[in-house]
Computed example of a mutant assay.
Amino acid sequence: MQRRNFLRAAVLGVGTSVAFGFSVSREAIAFPAEPGTGPYGQLLPPDANGIMLPKGFTSRVVARTGQKVAGTDHVWHGAPDGGACFVDGDGWIYVSNSEEYDGKGGVSAVRFDSAGGITAAYPILAGTSVNCSGGATPWNTWLSCEEFDRGQVFETDPWGRKEAVAHPAMGRFTHEAAAVDPEREVVYLTEDVSDGCFYRFVPTTWEDMSAGALQVLAERDGGLVWVDVPDPSAADTATRHQVAEALHISHGEGAYYRSGTCFFAAAGENRVYAYDAVNNVLNVAYDHDDSADAPLTGVDNITGAAVGDLYVAEDGGNMEVCVITPDDVVAPFLRVTGQDLSELCGVAFDPSGDRLYFSSQRGATGENSGGITYEVSGPFRKS
């Protein structure tokens, strides 16, 4: 059986699912999401920023590559990618990776006051390369991931007070995203290559990523198991090739953890997976190939709202951020026009859930020098 059909059987609970030892939860039976009417209705014509939004929502430009962030002396980085928000007193901080090459990458931050005004912007990591996505931690740091062979994870301080630290124990591979699971005290990691794997890092001491075990999700004896990667440094053999039974997933992208489940995108398969950590089951939350009119393609960065909605940005497609609801409906939330050579990334909500941040990595120019970071405000549902 091909891996694709093996996973589909595991999700739907048909045919071979019992033989392979998988359990199917009530939530899993509803997967995968299907096209439908989203919670915010149809998209309106493009606004002044070229963004199509539902009624009641507005957009503004937060920063442009090569230009100073408004009211600051900080020049915004090229190729903005993954991002996250952190509470800062009555305001918040948005951090954004730079996917520039040759040591020109890193991370920058923008600080906002309680009304959303920009009060500061500054670098928190420099001298790294291809900082793609990453993940926020419960102890208020940002894990920034390098997306190249033997790339590393860097832990950064959103306030810029502490020096960023590399964590080679988390593996040397083509990192994409990180998602922290505080219940099991692990960090899930995705890998953006055609035969990539899904990993987790088990730190020796929680909240300290300097030491621990890197494990890969594998198929063994009819079920899923986590197996230690013998050499996380990949000195001689790539991490994804060190465990024979490792489950290979094509081009792992963004990851988001919530309530026992790690959702992550697989761009090479046009899928969003849902790893049920409680029951150790891998489900397919969304599959583009399941519907002829599926709106979401080129799945990439993911974030979530408190109400349970997932927001998935496209790298390709028609430059949309789509919403996947807890009722398993997928629909466009916004569309960026006039930027077909770019990709959308860095989706993250402010602490109130009233503002969504995202970037168009290459903007209208199609070059890393054309990046634009946006904010969308409006009546995001809370219940």
Rank of each mutant, 00 (worst) to 15 (best):
D228R: 05
V272F: 11
A277L: 14
R161C: 10
T239K: 01
G41M: 08
N368Q: 13
A313E: 02
Y275Q: 04
E176H: 12
S259H: 11
F148N: 09
Q242S: 08
G298H: 03
R362T: 02
L334D: 02
A169F: 00
H248R: 15
V11G: 08
D350F: 03
V14M: 11
V321H: 03
T365S: 13
V321C: 07
S194F: 12
Y275H: 03
D236Y: 13
S108T: 12
M209T: 01
L310R: 00
G304V: 03
E183I: 15
R26Y: 03
A294E: 09
R172M: 01
A164M: 03
L247T: 05
T190L: 08
N318R: 11
F349Q: 08
F333R: 02
F6Y: 15
W92R: 08
T365D: 12
T237P: 01
V87G: 09
G223T: 10
T72H: 01
D354K: 15
T128A: 15
D228L: 09
W226S: 05
P39N: 02
M52A: 14
D149L: 12
S250G: 06
G317A: 13
V110A: 01
R4G: 11
E146G: 09
T37M: 14
G50F: 09
G363K: 00
A48I: 06
G82N: 01
S96G: 12
F112Y: 07
G268N: 05
K104Y: 04
E245A: 14
G353H: 00
E253I: 09
A218D: 03
F154R: 02
R335W: 05
Y94M: 05
D88V: 07
G346K: 02
F198D: 04
S342A: 13
I124G: 00
M52H: 08
M52Y: 05
